[in-house]
Design a protein around this nucleic acid. Sequence first.
DNA 1: TAGCTTGTTGATCGTTGCTCAGCAAGCCGA
DNA 2: TCGGCTTGCTGAGCAACGATCAACAAGCTA
Lengths: 189, 189
Amino acid sequence: MTGRARRSADDRRAQLVQIGLELLPTTPVQELTIDEVARRAGISRSLLFHYFPSKRDYYAAVTRAAAELLWAHLLPRPGTPGDGSGVDGMLDRYVGWVETFRETHLAFVRGASGGDPWVAEVYAETRDRLVEVGLRTLGLPDDARRRQLVLAFFAFTEDLVAQWVLEPTMPREELLALLRDVLDRLLPR
Amino acid sequence: MTGRARRSADDRRAQLVQIGLELLPTTPVQELTIDEVARRAGISRSLLFHYFPSKRDYYAAVTRAAAELLWAHLLPRPGTPGDGSGVDGMLDRYVGWVETFRETHLAFVRGASGGDPWVAEVYAETRDRLVEVGLRTLGLPDDARRRQLVLAFFAFTEDLVAQWVLEPTMPREELLALLRDVLDRLLPR
DNA sequence: TAGCTTGTTGATCGTTGCTCAGCAAGCCGA
DNA sequence: TCGGCTTGCTGAGCAACGATCAACAAGCTA
């Protein structure tokens, strides 16, 4: 043979996670098989288990990567000043994220709530970080009650935006205004 | 042997679904194995496949049973007049349902959003029925926009109540008032 | 060239979803 | 009592998948 491609550990790891990210949108989390990932990477199953001790670890890594993408997309970009840093900006970017990466995002959310505790933990971490940033942006103290309300507001937003993208029953601006209105209602300043 | 217990088809079916309902709260949906169910029922795996063509069909049947329980609990009871028939009554009963059957309810919701399309369909049916009843109870027309909002409100309620049950950050009455307030805000009369 | 590190594989195992041929329990008519 | 029918039920076995392990080989360094 012409010699197998021998990659560095980091390279291989990144490649495998990347394949997971590409497969995630089209494949239900539970149907994503190690065999398929290994086949796409052109390696044996054994090697994947060398980098990730178990299937769960692999899924968790992929989920974490997806969360990082979302996170990076939600933060205000330094290059885009103006309405970037407020809550309105974050809501706007969130809707934009779902509009652009709808499949990936739904897979992320579903995979998170679907069974596996390790994956759910990654999702919970991301949500917690978002709550923290959200409350800070709103200039409100971070207590248990507000945390619950913000988390529930996320659930509301996720559900509504996911539906709205499929069937836009109102203008984009109205959706954003409605979300902002509900949030203000829940957390009066 | 003393002769195996030979049941009628309906009996056996009901027994298997019942075992699923009992196992659901303590076992993540994906870890629930046919072997375990068959063992608890004292039958062979083969027989379970005789009644349910596939694992999915079995899960769907169990999920449907759980949905029926929820549904029956949410409808106003004829014997309990007073505040039973309005939206407040339904919200009250929903909170009560989650308080009492928290584990089962979380398992129901998670199982619904976790991967399997057949199970998700059962969940979607239940939600649709609830939206219909909700809008009718509110005396509002049933259009696409309102449907989306009510569904998103369900997501909000599910999330908030699930958290609140674990850590009650406000009195029960305040929770109910808040839910009602948000609903009125979303669907002004 | 020898030797070490480490990326990589093939053989193999246990579990699990699923199939299939056939057994056996109960009921019926003669 | 006997034969025959329906149908609840089983056991052997297959394919797919997650996971393990001993061993090979690519590339660097001395």
